[in-house]
Write a protein that binds this DNA or RNA. Structure first.
Lengths: 230, 230
DNA sequence: GTTCCAATTGGAG
DNA sequence: GCTCCAATTGGAA
């Protein structure tokens, strides 16, 4: 609850335009072109790192914090990001491309989606293609909110992947592309809130653990002093 | 540009919940039940006063300011709010109800609307039914923005009239009601910005006039003193 | 626990 | 000058 606790989340721009952004981008060349692995439920597309045309230091910190803190808890059920490549070929074969073919989603997922409800369809695809933490730390445009010009902009979702989703939903749900994009914006916002909650929990737990440790030390000291007396 | 200048526009709540709101509401009984008059282009539905279930003092001030300041300039082309009743019966007869029949719009307007573009259709109807200044000072729900909890909420647009518009557009444009409602929200926001601009201009003009007057006085005084010397 | 809503904003189109 | 976009927010559904 304390302001300083959220300092790194409720980010405010310190410099109007960070001159170091170019250098940072240069330092992070395109390593992997968004390989989408087949993982049942919540496929975790590698969170961030690749497609950030421009971000300033603060944004990077947010993502690192997110990566560091929330990667361990059971937010992904069975998934092993690394082990994904060791999965049997049959399972991998069940991933199919959508749109222009950049985005890959489990075939079974496509079958479960109700294409009458474009909002849900969009969210399902987003979840599958990007994973929660990417959604939480990115948005459609990567631009600052006009309503909150002091807040750090989030990174931009990979355009090609977004387009694949938008196309697919627009076609199969028979809606225009715009409501789909709006839906993406909302999903990212929602996942952002979710991430924050996760981090709050984590911090609370850490604090609690520290408290426990402190009390243990205290007790130990007390015992020691008692022993000395007798 | 000075903060105090916009003080009454960029309203901040002073008290959490204004206890006087009831009294104010009582002081403004429902005078006219939203009579919509037929005026070519921009029909000016009487701005405010009738359907405000709950608003605090600040909100009232905003509306009064708006009424007082922007009613004179040429924001409405040919319209005479008062004279509307003197218009020939034929002209009045050309007004037709939409939706459940609460909202009335000029028949010719309905004909000009392109029902393939729901956003434009919505805006046209809004303009006709409510008029710019009502749109500028009201919104869909009358609730505070969650993103700006300190800003005064605008008054709520008459629900029956809104419903008539929403129904009509949803039907004739073959869209769901929600995009129409979103469109209303945006239109109100846009008209709010428009009103602000008008007021800025007015204030600038007033200031300029004062300046002129002051200079004239100055000159006069100078002349007087010269006359005294000779 | 998620999804959805709508208020507000500045700027792009 | 008007329309449209999407970022952010808290709470409702």
């Amino acid at each position: 609850m304390s302001p300083e606790f959220w300092g790194f989340l409720a980010l405010r721009r310190r410099e109007p335009q960070d001159g170091s952004s170019k250098a940072v981008t240069a330092a992070v060349p395109d390593i992997s072109p968004q390989l989408t692995v087949a993982v049942p439920e919540i496929s975790p597309q590698l969170p961030s790192g690749t497609n950030h045309p421009s971000f300033s230091r603060d944004a990077v910190e947010l993502e690192q914090a997110a990566d560091a803190d929330v990667s361990t808890p059971k937010d992904t059920c069975t998934n092993p990001t690394a082990e994904a490549k060791l999965v049997s070929p049959e399972t991998i074969a069940k991933v199919v491309p959508i749109g222009d073919g950049n985005a890959l989603v489990p075939a079974y997922l496509l079958k479960t989606i109700n294409w009458n409800v474009h909002k849900i369809a969009t969210r399902k695809l987003l979840q599958s293609v990007f994973g929660r933490r990417v959604l939480a730390t990115h948005n459609l445009t990567g631009k600052v909110s006009p309503a909150f010009p002091d807040k750090m902009p989030k990174a931009k979702l990979d355009e090609a992947l977004v387009n694949d989703i938008v196309q697919t939903v627009a076609e199969r749900c028979n809606v225009t592309e715009n409501p789909v994009r709006t839906c993406i914006t909302i999903k990212c916002a929602d996942e952002g809130k979710w991430l924050r909650k996760q981090l709050t929990k984590l911090k609370a737990k850490k604090k609690e653990d520290l408290e426990k440790k402190r009390k243990a030390e205290e007790k130990k000291l007390k015992m020691n002093s008692l022993n000395l007396k007798t």
